[in-house]
Design a protein around this nucleic acid. Structure first.
Lengths: 331, 331
DNA sequence: GGCTATGGCGCATCCGGTGCT
DNA sequence: CAGCACCGGATGCGCCATAGC
């Protein structure tokens, strides 16, 4: 059985289909009894408005698209989840596109596909610098908001303040008497990695401490482990801030294998506060990012743009979660 | 400037708009030079077909909807990611809806919204039993595929074989000489929790071992920790299989706090193989689920249904990943 | 065979028309 | 007779399908 349409409802209620359209869209001038008759017909027929037709006629779909690389990491997927909820609350649907590669062409294709499908706006989750670059020179007529660290002129962006977060972590170590603090960086091609590195360097410089070269990993626990093995050989430091919690986990693993105690011999601060961090051995002191808030703010900016407001950027402050992996320096 | 439409292209190429429609849809009977002229006009105008209009006319959108509760856990978000990629490869777009609560009404509303927006099919990711129940009595005209453990008659479902996975974990412990093996279960209201519990019980029974009551947690590392504290008091077992890796992490934490060595005193097997599991202390022996494959299979079943085939179910075998948290029993 | 005209898909919206006060 | 509240006819959104030339 075909779904009922406006005409069917109109016939059933003994009015024209335009009148039905009016009651659906809450038009004011309608006699109450006609309204009720129409409503009754709608209920009896189980009529549901066809969003596609409406989109075609109004040129707006109440849908926003989001494109991301689709890695199931804690940060991106939490952001997605928060954003999707915010969309629902705002009465918008969301269409997602994952992109198979990081090159510009793939990203532009992903965005184009979304636009062709009629989304009212698009949000780009750009973790890598190449992705951010691709997003920056996007030219579309729809509102665009970027979720990323690193900024872009004339574009709405939302980000967690990574620089402040890394500085917070570093300062925490400094406050505990540490003076030689190493940094485990994420890969160069990630925006967050660069920003966090900057934060560490800035905090070190502010305290007049020597900035030694960062150790670079790929975010994985395995990388943290390997870096930790190397670090265990040359124990010329008492603190390390890790670019994320996973690398901190691997690092602690390696240190432990080498008979080095955390936080007895070295203190460690992570970044992200993944749910597991609380139960690492020892429970990890780390920097928490409020991804749900990121999602909400993203939709907020989108709604702004949709209402023809100017682009603006919001930065969300991270928070230090103090647990057991940091102790006062003994040297 | 308004985007170009079929008419504009037709005028520019000096043909009618149907002819343009034909070249776009790859219709065979077209003189090569008209084709080229049209293609040129398309390129010059930067014409892009309007998917909304096409959807209205053809009644198919090449879009599938997926509804889930949106928790950013490793399993669900990996599944999402795998599925989204599979959709892209098949030329389908995906619209996601997260549901704010687990009750039936919310789920039906989520599905209805997707259907109203014109998706060609919907996939439901049902982690909780209430969600599965809600999905089971869904009545829609579109193809439906369920991603869940637990089955549903006459509906296409894809799942990882949780029973086999838990049996695998348990048997691994048995093979290492363990005879008293406890089980850390996930909450009752999760489908996976029940299935894994069944697998453990079956394996224990098969080996003629006593089945003691499971300890029930909520999947979190914290719960694993608390259960571990209780367990440490009464060390009447040598092995434990945990319903997921996070609880295993918390458990190991608690055991370690109590001076109990893993795997020296007790052996532990997890479930999921989250990326961090490899670097727990000790590296965790666990059951890996191939979520990317789940995503691919899900789209495969959807495509089947879209091609008017009968519903069918696929079960994906999990795999034991042997690491360091299991040792031969000393008792 | 190669192409054009016509008629929808389901809805919104401008505009013009009733009946009433 | 002016003015308002309410309703319906025609037209179009951008495309596809069918029949026709």
């Amino acid at each position: 059985m075909k779904p009922a349409n406006l005409h069917d409802v109109a016939r059933r209620a003994g009015v024209s289909h335009q009148t039905v359209s009016r009651v659906i869209n809450g038009h004011p001038s309608l006699r109450p009894d006609t309204r009720d008759r129409v409503l009754a017909a709608i209920a009896e027929l189980g009529y549901r408005p066809n969003a596609t037709a409406r989109a075609l006629a109004t040129r707006t779909s109440r849908t926003v698209g989001v494109v991301s690389s689709g890695d199931p990491n804690y940060g991106p997927s939490s952001t997605m989840s928060g954003f999707t909820s915010a969309c629902r609350d705002a009465g918008y649907a969301v269409q997602v596109a994952t992109v198979p590669a990081v090159d510009r062409a793939s990203w532009h294709a992903g965005v184009s596909d979304l636009v062709d499908r009629g989304v009212d706006g698009v949000v780009v989750v750009a973790a890598r610098v190449a992705e951010l670059a691709a997003a920056r020179d996007l030219t579309i007529n729809q509102p665009l908001v970027l979720v990323t660290s690193g900024s872009a002129p004339k574009i709405s962006t939302v980000s967690v303040d990574q620089v402040a977060g890394a500085a917070l972590a570093t300062q925490h170590l400094i406050d505990h008497g540490h003076r030689s603090i190493r940094y485990l960086a994420g890969p160069d091609d990630f925006n967050d990695a660069g920003a966090r590195l900057d934060g560490w360097q800035a905090a070190m410089a502010r305290a007049g401490l020597a900035v030694r070269p960062p150790l670079v990993g790929d975010w994985s626990a395995r990388a943290g482990y390997e870096l930790g093995v190397a670090l265990a050989d040359d124990l010329s430091f008492t603190g390390v801030v890790s670019g994320n919690d996973q690398m901190a986990l691997g690092l602690i693993h390696a240190l432990s294998d080498a008979g080095i105690s955390v936080p007895g011999d070295v203190s460690v601060v992570g970044f992200d506060d993944i749910p597991e961090a609380e139960h690492f051995l020892p429970p990890l002191t780390t920097i928490r990012q409020d991804f749900a808030e990121v999602g909400r703010q993203t939709m907020g900016l989108m709604l702004d743009l949709l209402a023809e407001h100017q682009p603006r950027s919001v930065s969300i402050p991270p928070q230090l979660i103090s647990r057991r992996s940091v102790a006062r320096s003994r040297v």
